[in-house]
Design a protein around this nucleic acid. Sequence first.
DNA 1: GGCATGTGTATTTTT
DNA 2: TACACATGCC
Length: 712
Amino acid sequence: MPKDGTSNDQWLVELNEQQRRAVTHGDGPLLVIAGAGTGKTKTLACRVAHLIASGVPAERILLLTFTRRAAAEMINRARHITDRPDAASVWGGTFHAIANRILRIYHSAVGLPNDFTIMDQSDAADLMNVLRTDLGLGKGDRRFPRKETLIKIYSRTIAAQEGLRDVVKRFYPWCDDDTDAIAELFEAFVERKRKHGLLDYDDLLLFWNVLAHVSAAADVVADRFDHILVDEYQDTNALQCAILQHLCERNKNLCVVGDDAQSIYSFRAATVRNILDFPKQYANTTVVKLEQNYRSRKPILNASNAVMAEARERYTKELWSNLEGDQKPLLIHCVDEQGQCNEVCSRILKHLEEGIPLMKQAVLFRTGHHSDMLEVELAKRNIPFHKFGGLKFIESSHIKDVLALLRVLENPRDEISWFRILLMLNGIGSAIARNIVDALLAEDEGTERTVTDEMETESVRFSIAIKRLAENPPSVPAGAREGFEKLRDLLLTCSGIGQNTAENSSETSMNIPPISQQIELIREFYEPLLERRFDNAAMRTRDLEQLEHIATSYRSRRSFISDLTLDPPASTSDLAGPPFLEEDYLILSTIHSAKGCEWDVVHILHCADGMIPSDMAVGDDEGIEEERRLLYVAMTRAKDHLYAYFPLRYYHRPNSSTDAHSYAQLSRFISRDILPTFEQHTIETPQVQDDPVKTKASIESVDNYLKTLWRN
DNA sequence: GGCATGTGTATTTTT
DNA sequence: TACACATGCC
C-alpha cells in the first residue's frame, strides 16, 4: 500500500484541471460550482479518497448528500479508488439521517429521550389535525387552513428560520387572518410532540443545530469532523446552513458542491442564497467551476442551454461538451395523452431493439400522477418498470397501518399511532379511541421521565401503556371486544410479554421476537382487516410481504422504523409484476427524483403549459423560474437521445367515455426562439391498436378507427 | 351520542 | 385516492 500521495497520481490523471483542483484542495472553505454532467459525483468521491489517502481518518469525514444512495455510491467509489476498506467508516447520508445518528448518541444533552420516534410529514399533519380539532379551530364557517397547509407553514418557518408572521404574509397570504390561531396551534403541536417523544423532520435539524451551540456536547460535536463535504448545496435551507456553520467553527474545512441553475427545492425552503453567498459567508473561499459536460451530446446541451438562456437571472457558467452528435432533441406533438403513451412505448421498444436496455432509458415527468396512463400502457405491453418519486410505498395507508403498530411498540406514547390502530378495529370510532388512548397514556403523562440512559434497557423501556394493556386493559364496547383482544395479544407478544399474565411479565420481557417475526405476526393480525378495508387487497398484501422482507436485514425495530421514515424505498406498486424479479426495467421518475441521475435515452412527458410549468407554480416569477430550472434538470439527464412530448388535447375525465377536452399550449419554456434547437415531429392520428376496443369510446376515436379501415 | 357509510372534491415537487 | 362532510342507523 503506497503511502500518502503516491497512489494519488493514478486517479488524478483522469481528472480535468478544475476537477483536480477541487479534489486536491487542502484546508479551508471550498466552493465547487458544478454544472450538470460535469463529473460532480466523481469529483466528490475522489476528494473523499484524497482526504483519506492524505491521512484524514475516515470516521472524521462527513459527507452530506441529498439521498442515502448518493452517499453510499460516493463512499463506495472512494473505497475502490483508495483500496482502503476503512473508507466505509466515512459518515455519509442526508442531513436528516445524520441528525438522527448524532441525536441517538447525544440525545440527553438536549433533553430528548433515547427512544424518540420520527414522524414523517403526513404523521405530522395528522397530529396537527388532532390538535386543530381539540382547539376547536376550523369550526363554523371560518375557513381554517387544512392540515397539509398547516404543516407546510410550520415546516417552512423552521427551515427558513423566519418569523411565522413573515412566512404567512409572503407565502400563504390567504391565511393571514388566522396567524394568531396558527401560532397557538403550533405551540400546542410542539408541546405535544415533546410530551410523546416524537420528532418530525424539522426537529431533527433543529436539535442538531441546538446541540452544536447551547449544550454541553457542543465541543464534542464541533470537534467530531475534520472535513465536511456537502453535495447539492443549492438545495439546502437556512437551518442547514446554520448547522454547517456550527460544525466547522473549529476548522473551516467545508467543501460545498452545487449548481445554482439546478435549484429545484424552494418549496422546502431551500435557498440559492446559500450557494451564491458562500464566499461572503466564509472568508478566503476557493471557488472552482466545473463547466465541461461529459454526459450529453452537443445538440442536447445546446437545447438545454437555450432553455436556460431565457431565465430571468443570469447563471454563472455556460456548459460545453466535446461529444459530437447530429440528432437534435425531438419535440413530438401528439394528439392526446394516449397518443403520447403509444409514442413513448414504441420509441422505448425501438431503442431496446437497437440494444439500449430499459435501465438506460428513463421517462421523466413533473408530478407523480403524470405517468398514470403510461403505467397502464406499459403493463399492457408487458414492459417492466420502476417508478421513483410520486406516491411512495411508505405513504400508502396499509403500510402506515403496519408501521403504526411497530411505532406503538417502540414508543408507546405515540398517540397518533394508537389512534390509527384503534380506528382500524370494527366498532371503534374516534370517541371510543379517544377514551382508550386516554386510559392507556394517563399515568404515563403524569410521570416525570427520570429514567437515565443506563436504565433504558429493552426490558424497562416499554412503558406504562403496554403494562396497563397487560394488567388492566381499558374496557371497550361489546362490539369491539373481539378485535381489541386480538390487538392486545399481538402487542403483548411483540413486546415479549406473551399471553401470560402480569406476574411473570418481567421475566419473559426479554423475549422480544425478531423484527421480521413481529411483522409476520402483525401481518396475520392485519390481513383480515385489510381485506375489509380495501378492494385491491392482493397488491397490498404483496407490499406487506415486501416490508417483511426488508425487515429481515434489520437487527432492531428502532433502526428499522427510523430508516423507513428517513430513507423510504421507492414505490413498489408496479403494475408490471414483482420488480425485484425482473433483470431489466424501465425507469419512471419525477424530475425531482431524477436529480443527479443520467440515462442514454430520456423521454420527458407533458411538455405543456400547466404541466411544466405546473399550474400550481405560475403564481409568481420565482415559481416560474424554478419550473424552468426543472425542465433544464430533466433535459440535462440525457446522454444520447432526448424526446420531449407535447399532447395537444387533454380530456377532462380521462377514464370516462365523455369527450370533453381542452387544447393545451406548448410549454412556455420551449419558446419560439429556441424551437430551432429541437427537431419537430407530429403524430397525425392516434395509433390504432390491433384491438380497437382499447381505444377511447368517443365519436372521434370511432371515426379515426374507420379511417384506418378505409386506408387499409 | 356515536359509529358506519355514502357523496363530493381537490390533487406538486420530498427529507 | 384520500379526505372532509353529511346522513342514516344502533
